[in-house]
């Protein structure tokens, strides 16, 4: 047995992706930090089959919001629309403020609201790509389960989370 334990780098099982906190999904069913953006899908308050695709680019903080049919969001003028606000709020719940701020590369002082620290303006973003990533996300729930053992999951033990 190695005295004192080996370095973190030499472990087969370590947590790499920080745990995601449970949150209500009804309003914002999908949020992710990917492709250099905070992006996600926000359910429309009025039309149950319509959703908004909203994103904020890391670094530039460019804002984008449109319907899944690619119609620009009427609420996004100069200031962020309510969908972007909801996206940010839910991302902070899911990932924690630190992780979202670090990803977007924004300084948020103690007690400040992340949204108010963003200085970006409207910018086009590939809403169709984000929407298809959401559909792909949903498609996981349609995959059949399996009872054939998956030994590879020994590398992925459930590690609990903040209770």
């Amino acid at each position: 047995m190695t005295a004192g334990g080996a370095a973190w780098e030499q472990h087969s099982v370590v947590r790499v992706v920080p745990p995601v906190k449970p949150r209500k999904l009804a309003k914002v069913p999908f949020v992710e930090l990917a492709d250099g953006r905070l992006q996600g899908v926000v359910s429309s308050g009025s039309d149950i089959s319509r959703v908004y695709v909203s994103s904020i680019t890391a670094g530039t903080h460019g804002l984008n919001c449109s319907t899944n049919n690619n119609r620009p969001c009427g609420g996004l003028r100069g200031a962020a629309c309510k969908h972007l606000q909801a996206l940010v709020d839910e991302a902070v719940l899911q990932y924690g403020l630190d992780r979202v701020a670090r990803y977007l590369r924004v300084e948020v002082a103690d007690g400040d609201d992340l949204m108010s620290c963003l200085r970006g303006s409207r910018e086009t973003a590939p809403a169709a790509v984000v929407f298809s990533r959401f559909l792909r996300h949903l498609a996981y729930l349609e995959l059949p389960g399996t009872t054939a053992p998956i030994p590879e999951l020994h590398w992925f033990p459930a590690m609990g989370e903040v209770r």
């Binding site: 729930l141 389960g145 009872t147 989370e161």
Partner: peptide, 12 residues
């Protein structure tokens, strides 16, 4: 073993 596909927001 029984396994299922899921997404990251289904936890606990």
């Amino acid at each position: 073993s029984v396994a299922a596909a899921k997404v990251d927001t289904i936890v606990g």
